[in-house]
């Protein structure tokens, strides 16, 4: 596993799309803060950097993670280099976990990159702002939950890449899942309510919905929901990627 991780880390560092997406992600972060600063003549309602903290985590980060993870994980199949790994007796589980862990690392780097390029410009533009008594715990919780949810997304991207084994296809499917899962969940919610008369809040239990919920003041319900959704999807996606890989041949 150590060797797999070392090799994957080396490959990631040489992946141009990883760096390009990181730069664009950071550029977007800077652009967002700059837009608020320069279109409103300063922060909204005397807002400081600490008030802006929840928005230092972007829902666009998973999109860039999707691009990089898809190219990184599925590229091995496209180039045929997965044969160089699997033919040396490495267990399929270890191969998948190594790619998943590096996928998580990609997401973490993007989260940190976006955060730094949002928070520090905000600090420069608007000052520190006022911190509530619970700010530190809330900030840590928000950060932890945003990371958990992004890692769940990242696991999805790795799983799709291993299932489709083609970068472009994996990217397309992952983006569709991100973009249209809310529509699908809303339709299903409607069907369950109107046809089967089952009350439900299905769209709230999506990763993207949970990420958005973290922009508002934290409540116990949101924290629990984020934990459930984050860990739930993460485990489901892990199993979806792992189990078929054990059986499938590698071309």
């Amino acid at each position: 596993m150590k060797n797999l991780l070392s090799s994957d880390w080396y490959k990631l560092r040489r992946l141009k799309s990883f760096w390009v997406c990181l730069i664009i992600n950071m550029g977007l972060a800077l652009a967002n803060v700059s837009l608020i600063q320069f279109s409103n003549g300063g922060a909204l309602d005397g807002m400081g950097a600490l008030d802006y903290f929840p928005r230092c985590f972007s829902t666009s980060t998973p999109l860039f993670a999707c691009i990089s993870v898809s190219i990184f994980a599925a590229g091995e199949f496209g180039y045929g280099t997965m044969k160089n790994i699997a033919s040396h007796g490495f267990r399929r589980d270890a191969i998948f976990f190594s790619k998943t862990l590096v996928g998580w690392l990609i997401s973490l780097v993007y989260i940190v990159g976006y955060f730094l390029f949002t928070f520090f410009p905000a600090l420069i533009f608007w000052g520190v702002g006022t911190a509530s008594e619970t700010f530190v715990t809330d900030a840590l919780l928000i950060a932890a939950l945003q990371i958990l949810l992004t890692l769940a997304f990242s696991t999805l991207f790795t799983t799709v890449a291993f299932l489709l084994r083609q970068s472009g296809g994996a990217m397309a499917i992952s983006i569709c899942i991100m973009q249209f899962s809310l529509l699908g969940a809303s339709l299903l919610q409607l069907f369950l309510q109107e046809v089967l008369h089952i009350e439900n809040q299905l769209p709230h239990y999506l990763i993207s919905s949970c990420m958005n919920a973290l922009y508002d003041p934290l409540t116990q319900e949101v924290i629990q929901r984020c934990l459930l959704v984050g860990f739930g999807f993460l485990i489901v996606f892990l199993l979806c990627g792992l189990l078929p890989l054990r059986k499938r041949d590698i071309k």
Binding site: R14, L15, K16, G75, Y79, G80, T81, N84, S87
Partner: peptide, 11 residues
């Protein structure tokens, strides 16, 4: 092993 075609990273 070298199977079917040379498997290398083009970049």
């Amino acid at each position: 092993t070298v199977i079917e075609y040379p498997a290398v990273f083009p970049h």
